[in-house]
Design a protein around this nucleic acid. Structure first.
Lengths: 226, 226, 226, 226
DNA sequence: AAATAACCGAGACGGTACGTCTGGTCTTTTT
DNA sequence: AAAAAGACCAGACGTACCGTCTCGGTTATTT
């Protein structure tokens, strides 16, 4: 779920929220009832819109990403567009969510190896080594989040999800005794991610060797961190 | 000098055109001659424009920063505005340059003390503890730099200047033997600055205690860095 | 129809997309179907725009007739304005077309009486004896037509329509034998209209008595014209 | 003298193009590198300004006639331009006055012959048969005169001067007894000129044969005019 | 089979900002 | 003192998007 999407139109796929807990009497009926009559959201349109978004960004940059242009290219009505993606940032988040599955499975051995692999995978995703580059999209999302608290929350959530693997890496290392038992996990993750993030923001994504160096340097701090 | 400002309008610094090449005899006279006749750039207008820019941002946020509004508020013509500040980012850079002098003098003792003082001063400038907050301005500049190479260069230069004091701190520490002789200064500075920068970009500027912790953690990495 | 207005916006008359090619059987049904769905042109806006145009001209003269001012006064968007009236001349023509119906019915007896009545009516319309003065509007239209071939054509058409009554007057006179059988009607009309037109252009619209004199003088030439 | 020019700066003193006819060698040079400056009005500047005016109109039409462009092309300061020609119409009048001398001497025999010759000469001047076309310039002057009383007066004066020859033709005809003794000269002139003027305004300047027909038709009215 | 409800495309609408251009005025330097 | 050069304020120009809306037409459920 992204960006308070549940507040706007009816619901979509999910039906029950809170009150449904009491209505246990007709449970099976609830499950099969649609939220409403009428046509459902068109999946073809959703695909067309996200495709148009990606194409516009790829062809002419973020500056050419106009709600108007997306609607026209996707052959979608502007009302439809605004109904489901009220902001350009929603479009970007949609793209990012699409790409989320493409992160490769964890790999690497030992704390250092796992960290290097993780950061390399992330940088590859940002740089677009296999598929469209996510870096510029993420940057734009952050820029819009500065004036859009909803988006800021969504990005925080996004960060949390994306760092699941990092959390696991660190937890394993603590368990193994490679890192202090009383390590402040949140700060550790910020510390580890801040350098790659900084390079993303200044448009200087590192190569493989630099990533290894970065991990080494950061580990120096990490070992003493509480 | 920021942002290729010298490329656009007339000339300003240069004097010779065609015939002046022969007049090498009176070089020092040439130096004091104006490039051309005609009125000079109005300093009052420059001040009014930057003032209007600051006021608009302070009152209604960056979203309200419109070239149109700046011109109206500064009682300046739009042509004048565009002549000297062809982009909103130019206005922001103008403000940032104005604020550059307000950094307090270096203080703190020892490597750790100096770093804590330096980062604290910078965060205070970003947060606006004494004057207008520079943080949001800087963020916006970065956002625009992603689609404006000129601005990206200008920001790089800006970073370099702002980090003069940091360079001195590190150099002293190396001289004292507090840090390795073969320290890679550029990477060290990036490493040190990335965390505060990351917090700026995610709008979570740290308090005094957190800054001390950050410095401690980073120093752990720094000591082993080559 | 004025000024190629039909050429601009999308399509309007065409219906077929893909599958419609087969449905050629119901041609007359096609005729009444709208070309595309979507909101139609707002008549209220049209009235507001023409009203604003008239008001601005009346209050401050043609010099104050700014597309910007019309839009603001009519509370219409500039895009709307430009969509339907791409030129100031289009606005003027709109006003003139509005006023076209206000010409009184033919009157007068005999060739001379009819001509005097016709020219008097026209001059009254120009001078604004009953309603807004059309003269200045027409003059401005001509001025713009010099650099706008579309407008020139529209004015020619406008002239043709306005002269229908004059054509009838002359035709009746020829039939009665009051004028030569082989009269060149086109030249005769030009000849008759040139004097009032000239006075309009030099801002010296004639009074009733002068009109009678003009008609008498012109008739002298008309009787011998072939 | 035209257009209240005497109210503003000194006077002028009539410039007259002294020997420019001989100096054809450096004609274009005059435009680009003048002796410039000095405490007196420069005749070279006046020539350059009018030349630039004519060139701009010839090359890109009246729409491209900008005070700014004239100044730049004539290498004159805008202040200078405004001082001597406060309106575009002043520039046009300047051009028209320049061309005034180029009317050929009277010719033709008898009232009809003289009239045909006179109108033909005028139409030739308008159409630009020998030199630049004056017709469009005159039209623009009239258009501006509708919102500029000064210019309207100047044009009236202009008309009066230009019609001197016409007055003489008519006077001779009256003396000879070819026209009524009590002919209203002013109305007669208006009557004669209105048709050509009308054709000028509707951009349909007549050929030689049409002119003869026009004169014949008009004479029909003229003979009975009092 | 109807009625109903939500979806969809197209696009007109009122607005607002854009970046450019011109109009006039004023300032500075040169002659 | 007049001329060039040109910076200045003011504001209209025509374009592009914004986000809202209205219009017909299309599915799907509910009655």
């Amino acid at each position: 779920m992204a960006l308070g999407e549940e507040k706007r139109p009816p619901a979509r796929g999910e039906v029950e929220k809170r009150g449904d807990v009491e209505n246990r009497g007709d449970a099976e009926k609830t499950a099969e009832r649609r939220a409403s009559v009428g046509a459902r959201r068109s999946e073809a349109t959703e695909a067309a819109v996200l495709g148009a978004t990606a194409a516009l960004i790829a062809e002419a940059g973020y500056g050419a990403l106009t709600m108007e242009a997306v609607a026209k290219r996707a052959r979608a009505g502007k009302a439809t567009l605004y109904r489901w993606w009220p902001t350009k940032a929603h479009l970007l988040l949609g793209l990012i969510s699409q790409a989320k599955g493409s992160m490769p499975p964890p790999r690497g051995e030992g704390l250092r190896g796992e960290l290097v692999a993780y950061i390399s995978d992330m940088v590859a995703l940002w740089r677009g080594d296999a598929g469209p580059a996510m870096g510029p999209l993420i940057r734009q999302c952050y820029a819009e989040s500065w004036s859009n608290p909803d988006l800021a929350l969504a990005l925080q959530e996004e960060r949390r999800e994306r760092w699941t693997r990092l959390t696991e890496i660190l937890n394993r290392a603590v368990t193994r005794g490679d890192l202090p038992q009383d390590l402040d996990l949140a700060r550790a993750k910020d510390f580890l991610m801040s350098w790659p993030f900084y390079l993303l923001m200044t448009d200087r994504l590192p190569d493989a060797q630099s990533i290894a160096q970065m991990v080494d340097d950061s580990l120096g701090g990490l070992h003493g961190m509480k």
